[in-house]
Design a binder for these strands. Structure first.
Lengths: 239, 239
DNA sequence: CTCTGTGAACTCTTTCACAGCC
DNA sequence: GGCTGTGAAAGAGTTCACAGAG
């Protein structure tokens, strides 16, 4: 997002050490997670070929092989990939082995859906704190955690040491919540509030906008028939 | 490349290169929705320049101008864009004027969060049916609608004529729900279940995976320090 | 002068196709 | 034969920088 500063003097030196190409492109990273999910359904010790794995993951084989090639050469030509090895390598590459302590702000419907998300603990995430501004919610227990007052965020977070924050509050509250989280040392934020957040450059921010997704879907639903109607109208008017 | 705005009369051939500005790239479409949201906070009749609008929308000015250029030439050089005109043009381009009838399946926490989503009605979406498989939920009322049994989907959907479906069920139920929706005439599906759906080619599918977003965030949280260390090491070794 | 619209360069991503290994 | 890994080409998206309108 932000301009990655100086490429003025580009590094002509590639391969200083050449352990392996460590840079995993953004697009690849998101698919690797998908492969990992699919791999979990194969038994360890099995061998799987790119075509089958790709089919199961909903991508095409060439793309999958290209993606995996960023990790190194873990396939065997003429054979395929060992499920156990591949699982391990992807996990390592994505850092899925390290645990993350997560604080969730806003325990409305969306927040509770997130708190109850089953894939949470399963993938190295530990929910360590819940917050809300609503006195009605504060003190209640969800997902085995008591909801704290957002006003106490500084103290609670200092104690619980979260590194990831999830914002599931109304848009109006999101910015101040983000600031609280950042002040408490959170360096990665997943924001579900439909608004733009300002955060320091060293904080990684990810935005998920449910309304926007719906509108994009509608756009595609529209544009296809509309294009057609448009073409038809043109043909008609020209005759 | 593109000129437009003249109601240029094209020939009867569809390959005539008359109407250019019609193809909006995917990446641009998603940002246009963002601009629309920001524009709502300006008063109609005002003029806004690309720099300001871009700042408010969180993109850079050149990108914004490029995006808007896909719509046609609605800006005035040396001046800026008229808020009212721009709002209208973006809405038209995105088809935000047409209403969409939405069916939502799964009224658990996530489903209720979606049902209660405020930006729903505000942007041409009308929730027309709610479904769940849980007898506990069936019959309850959320967001002004009674929850129907998913078993009755065919009948209810035939009557309510939804064009967009939202799946907010557990992963295991998603595929069969998708098939029900498709059979009932739904041609656009927004899927929140963390699984791959198989749908016919003419059905537009959009996937939102909350767990995946979280894991991607964690990936960046992990990889950034490493990247940095790597860059530093390179700089050091080269000087 | 300010600000838009866009060619051109650039970077990121996908796709093809085939060499090389089993 | 089957399959991986990857150069090379194609495509999508971004950024630069400037001509030209007001």
């Amino acid at each position: 997002m932000s301009k990655t500063s100086g490429s003025m003097q580009s590094g002509r030196r590639m391969n200083a050490d050449a352990e392996h190409a460590r840079v995993i492109p953004e697009a690849t990273a998101s698919r690797l997670l998908g492969y990992l999910r699919v791999l979990n359904e194969y038994s360890f010790g099995r061998i799987v070929c790119s075509r089958d794995l790709a089919l199961a993951a909903g991508v095409d084989a060439a793309k999958l092989r290209r993606d995996l090639s960023f990790l190194g050469n873990y396939g065997v030509r003429g054979v395929g990939y060992d499920v156990a090895t591949l699982t391990a390598e992807i996990s390592i590459a994505l850092g899925a082995h390290t645990a993350h302590r997560v604080a969730l702000v806003g325990v409305g419907n969306l927040g509770q859906a997130l708190a109850g998300y089953s894939g949470f603990a399963g993938h190295g995430f530990q929910l360590v704190a819940l917050f809300d501004a609503d006195p009605e919610q504060v003190g209640r227990t969800t997902a085995g955690l008591q909801v704290n007052d957002i006003a106490d965020a500084a103290t609670v977070l200092a104690e619980r040491q979260a590194t990831i924050g999830i914002i599931a509050t109304p848009a109006g509250a999101a910015q101040s919540v983000a600031e609280l989280l950042v002040a408490a040392g959170v360096r990665s934020i997943l924001n579900f509030a439909p608004c733009l957040l300002e955060v320091p450059g060293d904080v990684h921010l990810r935005q998920v906008d449910l309304g926007l997704e719906l509108q994009l879907l509608a756009f595609h639903a529209n544009s296809r028939p509309t294009d057609l109607a448009h073409v038809i109208a043109e043909i008609r008017s020209s005759s």
